[in-house]
Design a protein around this nucleic acid. Structure first.
Length: 899
DNA sequence: TTACTGACTTGTTGGTACTTTG
DNA sequence: CAAAGTACCAACAAGTCAGTAA
């Protein structure tokens, strides 16, 4: 099955292997968590019927995103190496098979009782499926369309949203259709597979009514309002079933079966000594027998097993296979080198207060080199001034910023001067910033930059290597026996604070951080990292395994805040929580209809707080606004939903709202949207009697809002809506828009969907300096081509009459071509022009839109991976190396996975 | 109930390594 | 091959949100 990967795709992991002793193993960390969670849950979820959604209808959702098999093998490569590349080769074939067998998912978690934790692991393998198939969701009440809609983001439903504003672009929007009004339906469950189900099951939901009381759903109903309301017989039944199944609650954890996947990563244990001990013991929960098997083997195994066992899975595996191959190789190596130990099963659970790791070994952090004085003298009042190294260092920080627009901000200069003048001392010749001329230092800086640029590539390489050598030991940590990359092991160097927007503290000196500022968090048995600066020592050493940070220090700009050193995004700890995030968002899919119905109902509630909550929730859902926490006066003045000011929203009759405010990072959000009339009216009410700078939602803050959301769905908070709307939009667009075509065309489809999401989330970037130049160059080229076209047409006419072509611009005679040849050329030129015009259009469209942010933070990678598998698009076309590493947990998803 | 504290995610930017184009 | 363009990534700022203290 494994398809072979084109060589190109294969990574060479060799380099990475170096880390000697480490063993890779992947424990299934997940286990612990998962176990708890849910086997049962899963079932439950699967059962739900969601008659409604179109998707479900399709029924085939993969049983769960993950396959058991797949999971087992997690493709995650040993830490170092970038994960997987899996070109997905033959997806189709695989797919078919899988589809055919509806539910069998090997992995599906099954229902288990918590009791047997051990069992739990097994669960994965057991297939669960029964429920699914049988249940058809029929929800008569809703029409398919409706269903579909539900699953879509609100915005999609309403067309109103016009553009997002971006820097300036405002849009107006016409509304198209509004079908917003939620209906109450039964909430069906989607058939989702497995992974997700759990949460809901565990928690009880409350009724949606706004503030309402919540009743726990507990056992019986999974879904709230809706369900009750409209059920039809059939539906009801289903529900009931579900509910019954659900009944027990599990602890919240995040868990999902999902965790499983993690488990499989290979771990490396470096320091064999320490780690091993611990891990080994754990017994396995069985999850896998595989655990003890090295990854490579597992992978293979999985592949093979798949074939045997579940047809379903096969697909997935295949697709990914290529990547696996590589891995396999590697892993083999690893095997030789190392010994495998089993990791303890404790999985990091995200639950708070929960244990995140059992053993943690790392080498602390690395400090920036001490300041090297350059001796270049700045001028004061036209005369050179002597500065101490400390003074010069800060002067240089300022000098370097000459050409930035911070220089035009009085606040920046003021703050800088306050801090720098302190360093200069009272009696210094320099009395005012106005008479300072930093040009000599700035020029020195430019020269240095130039020198660096001019270095030969060998020199550069050598420097790089040296740096790497120094940093190597800090780059890795060993967490529960697995070698993981550390994210930011470099302590931030001193500098001038660059706040975004009109930050009141911009320009302040961010002082140098020293070891005595730093608190280290490390396993009890691990050696305490040596302090890299002789004669100094760490501020404190902790052994707190309920947190994931390796070190922190207080932010020098805002001492009550912290700067943490965490593991890299590719680590399993991060991956796990990432996965949980998406599972929560998927869960929202099952609740969204009711939630929308509930807040719609509350638009006209008598109680003002209730009404504000309803409207705020609507805005968060429809416009993907952020929650909007309160901010201090010493921060930039930006807002989110709960902190919107009256002046940020303008009512445009009959029912449009124009938003204009600065959001996170002082990015402007401008958007004119058509809203439901009750919302429009409510906003008007909230505004009356207030001044522009008053809070629009005076009764609200994020904790109240989130407390309310939590009543509607376990774990629900405002930001979940962003994740949900982003991912559902991607899933929806990809499935709707993808057509046959070559890979490049499919990639374009993906990018278009990605762009849509970026627009919804208002992810902006600044226009590149060369943008206009690039555009005019393109225009020029197009004009040129058009000229050529004209010429060709003339030639064509002449050729038809048997005349020779006209001379070209240089007066040379052109070759005599047949009319057919000329026609061909014309066609080619036309194609070229069209392509250029298209490129120009996209370039213009994307000039202020950043696609990366949503890809990194909002789009469930399983959607992408599954789509790639289904459409034979190599995943590398969509995810770069670091995303592949970050999303290693998603690589073995079933091709049928739908968000 | 509010105000902090703490931990962790999300977001833009700027430099640089890598590619493409002329 | 150099300049232009693009893709990546690290840096680090700025959010979210839970928990605890006041």
């Amino acid at each position: 099955m494994a398809v072979e990967a084109p060589s190109k795709h294969v990574f060479d992991y060799d380099d990475e292997d170096d880390d000697g002793p480490v063993v890779f193993k992947r424990s299934n960390t997940s286990s612990s968590k998962q176990n708890q969670l849910n086997s049962e849950v899963k079932k439950a979820s699967s059962q739900r019927s969601d008659g409604q959604s179109g998707r479900q209808a399709s029924s085939v959702r993969a049983p769960n995103g993950q396959n058991s098999v797949a999971q087992t093998n997690k493709s995650i490569p040993p830490s170092k190496s970038p994960p997987i590349r899996s070109p997905i080769l033959s997806p189709k074939s695989s797919n078919s098979s899988s589809k055919a067998s509806p539910v069998v998912s090997s992995k599906a978690s099954t229902s288990f009782n918590d009791q047997s934790k051990q069992a739990s692991k097994q669960n994965k393998f057991t297939a669960v499926k029964e429920e699914k198939s049988p249940i058809k969701c029929t929800d008569e009440t809703n029409s398919d369309d409706d269903d579909d809609d539900d699953s879509k983001p609100l915005s999609a439903r309403l067309k109103g949203i016009s553009s997002q504003g971006n820097k300036g672009v405002s849009t107006s929007t016409p509304a198209q259709s509004q079908r917003f009004v939620p209906k109450i339906e039964v909430k069906g469950s989607a058939e989702d597979p497995d992974d997700d189900a759990p949460l809901s099951a565990r928690f009880s939901t409350k009724s949606n009514t706004g503030t309402s009381s919540s009743k726990p759903y507990g056992s019986h109903e999974k879904k709230p309002l809706a369900s009750k309301i409209q059920q039809n017989g059939s539906i009801m039944k289903v529900k009931q079933q579900k509910s019954s199944m659900l009944s027990d609650k599990r602890p919240l954890d995040k868990g999902n079966s999902s965790d499983q996947s993690y488990a499989k990563k290979p771990k490396i244990s470096d320091t064999p000594t320490m780690m091993k001990t611990k891990q080994v013991t754990v017994k396995a929960e069985k999850d896998d027998e595989d655990d003890h098997i090295p990854i490579s083997q597992r992978i293979k195994k999985s592949v093979s097993s798949v074939s045997k066992a579940s047809s379903v899975k096969q697909k997935a595996t295949k697709v990914v296979s290529s990547s696996f191959k590589k891995i396999n190789k590697k892993s083999k190596k690893d095997m030789k080198k190392s010994k495998y130990s089993k990791s303890s099963k404790l999985s990091p659970s995200s639950g708070d207060g929960q244990k995140k790791w059992s053993t943690l070994v790392h080498n602390g952090v690395i400090f920036p080199p001490p300041y090297k004085p350059h001796g270049v003298k700045m001028l004061y009042d036209g005369r050179p001034v002597d500065l101490t190294p400390e003074q010069e260092e800060v002067a240089t920080m300022f000098a370097v910023m000459q050409e930035t627009d911070y220089m035009s901000k009085p606040q920046f200069k003021k703050n800088f001067w306050e801090d720098w003048s302190k360093l200069l001392g009272r009696n210094h010749v320099i009395k005012s910033l106005d008479k300072c001329d930093f040009t000599p230092i700035y020029e020195w800086h430019l020269q240095e930059k130039e020198k660096k640029k001019q270095m030969s590539s060998e020199e550069k390489k050598a420097l790089k290597e040296e740096k790497l050598m120094q940093e190597e030991k800090y780059m890795w940590a060993i967490v529960d026996g697995v070698k993981e990359k550390v994210g930011n092991f470099r302590v931030e160097p001193p500098g001038l604070f660059r706040g975004r927007g009109e930050h009141p503290k911009m320009g302040k000196l961010k002082r140098r951080i020293r070891p005595c500022d730093i608190t280290i968090n490390i396993g009890k048995d691990a050696p305490i990292p040596e302090c890299p600066i002789p004669g100094e020592r760490w501020k404190d050493i902790k052994h707190d395994n309920t947190v994931t940070w390796l070190a922190f220090w207080n932010d020098p700009i805002n001492p009550k805040e912290f700067k943490y050193v965490f593991l890299a995004a590719s680590s399993s700890l991060k991956g796990q929580s990432d996965k949980e995030k998406y599972e929560k968002a998927r869960l929202l899919k099952d609740y969204i209809k009711n939630i929308r119905a509930a807040y719609t109902k509350d638009f006209t509630a008598k109680d003002v707080t209730k009404r504000q909550i309803a409207v705020a929730t609507y805005l968060i859902d429809k416009l993907a606004l952020r929650a909007g926490n309160e901010k201090d006066d010493d921060e930039a003045d930006t807002v989110g939903c709960c902190t919107l000011k009256v002046g940020n929203v303008e009512c445009i009759p009959p029912n449009k709202l124009k938003f204009d405010f600065l959001g996170k990072d002082s990015i402007q959000y401008v958007n004119t949207v058509e809203v439901e009339l009750p919302v429009y009216k409510a906003i008007g009410q909230f505004q009356t009697g207030k001044s522009k700078s008053d809070d629009l939602f005076d009764e609200l803050d994020t904790s109240k809002l989130n407390a309310h959301l939590k009543e509607l769905m376990p774990g629900l908070t405002a930001k979940v809506f962003r994740t949900y709307n982003a991912s559902i939009t991607l899933d929806d667009m990809l499935n709707k828009e993808t057509k046959d075509g070559d890979v490049a065309e499919k990639v374009v489809i993906y990018q278009r969907a990605n762009k849509e999401v970026a627009i919804i989330c208002n992810h902006q970037r600044s226009i590149s300096k060369s943008h206009s130049a690039q555009m005019s160059r393109l225009t020029e080229k197009i004009t040129e081509l058009k000229g050529l076209l004209k010429e060709l047409k003339t030639d064509l006419d002449r050729a038809k009459k048997g005349k020779p072509p006209l001379k070209d611009a240089d007066g040379k005679q052109k070759r005599n071509l047949t009319p057919e040849a000329i026609e061909k050329k014309i066609a080619q030129t036309n194609v070229k022009i069209e392509k250029m015009e298209r490129d120009m259009q996209t370039k213009e469209d994307l000039k202020t839109v950043a696609l990366g942010t949503s890809k990194i933070n909002y789009l469930d990678p399983r959607i992408t991976v599954a789509w790639c598998k289904r459409h034979e698009v190599p995943i590398e076309k969509i995810f770069n190396k670091s995303l592949l590493a970050k999303f290693a947990w998603a690589m073995d998803v079933d091709p049928d996975f739908r968000f």
